[in-house]
Amino acid sequence: MHYKALTAVSLTALILGAGAAAADTWRYAFEEAMEEVQGKYAQKFKEEVEANSDHEVQLFPFGTLGESADIMEQAQSGILQFVDQSPGFTGALIPEAQVFFVPYLLPADQDQLVSFFRNSKAIHELFPPLYAEQGLELLTMFPEGEVMMTTTEAVASPEDLNEVKFRVMTNPLLVESYKAFGATPTPLPWGEVYGALQTGIIQGQENPAFFIESTKMYEVTDHLTRAGHNNFTTAVMANKEFFDGLSDEDKTVIQNATAAAFDYIIEYQTGLTEESVEKIQAAKPEMTVTTLTEEQRAPFKATAEAVEAKFLEIGGSQAQAILDQMKADLAAAAGG
Score class of each variant (00 low, 15 high):
Leu161Trp: 01
Ile79Lys: 13
Phe242Glu: 03
Met149Pro: 04
Ser53Glu: 06
Ala154Asp: 09
Thr7Phe: 11
Val102Lys: 10
Pro299His: 06
Gln98Ile: 00
Thr170Met: 07
Phe243Pro: 07
Tyr264His: 15
Ile94Cys: 03
Ser68Trp: 08
Glu48Tyr: 06
Ser77Asn: 11
Trp190Ile: 04
Thr186Leu: 06
Glu50Tyr: 05
Lys301Leu: 11
Gln203Cys: 04
Leu292Trp: 11
Tyr268Leu: 12
Ser177Asn: 07
Glu213Cys: 08
Ala183Leu: 04
Val175Gln: 08
Gly66Asn: 02
Ile94Lys: 08
Ile71Glu: 04
Ala227Ile: 12
Leu173Pro: 07
Gly63Val: 04
Ala306Asn: 13
Thr303Leu: 09
Arg27Lys: 15
Thr215Tyr: 11
Ala69Pro: 02
Lys216Val: 09
Glu153Gln: 15
Gln98Glu: 09
Met169Thr: 00
Ala331Lys: 10
Gly66Glu: 01
Met287Trp: 13
Asp70Phe: 04
Phe262Pro: 11
Ser247Glu: 12
Phe101Thr: 06
Tyr104His: 10
Asn239Asp: 00
Leu138Asn: 11
Asn256Phe: 07
Ile94Met: 03
Leu246Asp: 11
Leu173Ala: 04
Pro158Cys: 00
Phe62Gly: 03
Glu153Thr: 14
Gly19Met: 14
His124Trp: 13
Gly228Leu: 10
Leu161Ala: 01
Tyr264Gly: 10
Gln110Phe: 00
Gln320Phe: 03
Pro187Arg: 01
Leu130Cys: 11
Ala69Phe: 00
Val99Met: 13
Gly78Cys: 12
Glu73Ile: 05
Gly66Ile: 02
Gln318Tyr: 13
Val220Arg: 07
Gly316Trp: 15
Ser86Val: 03
Val193Leu: 01
Pro285Phe: 12
Gln269Ala: 07
Ala298Phe: 02
Ile280Val: 14
Leu197Trp: 06
Gln325Arg: 02
Glu267Thr: 15
Thr140Tyr: 00
Ala306Trp: 02
Phe181Asp: 05
Glu31His: 06
Leu113Phe: 09
Ile94Gly: 04
Thr258Glu: 10
Gly19Ser: 11
Asp329Ser: 08
Ile254Ala: 05
Gly316Asp: 10
Leu174Met: 10
Glu153Ser: 14
Trp26Asn: 11
Glu294Ile: 01
Ser77His: 01
Leu174Ile: 06
Leu126Trp: 12
Val175Tyr: 02
Leu126His: 12
Lys216Ser: 14
Val253Phe: 06
Glu32Ala: 12
Ile265Lys: 01
Ala259Gly: 07
Ala20Cys: 03
Ala29Arg: 09
Phe181Ser: 08
Asp250Thr: 07
Val236Lys: 10
Glu313Trp: 00
Gly19His: 14
Phe62Gln: 05
Glu35Phe: 10
Val49Cys: 05
Tyr41Ser: 05
Leu130Gln: 14
Gln134Met: 12
Ala92Asp: 09
Pro208Cys: 02
Ala13Glu: 13
Thr270Asn: 15
Lys327Cys: 09
Leu330Pro: 06
Val155Asp: 05
Gln320Pro: 03
Asn256Ser: 05
Asp160Met: 07
Val49Thr: 07
Gln205Pro: 00
Thr290Ser: 12
Val253Ser: 07
Thr290His: 15
Ile202Ala: 05
Ile212Asp: 12
Ala227Asp: 10
Ala328Trp: 05
Ala154Val: 10
Val168Ala: 03
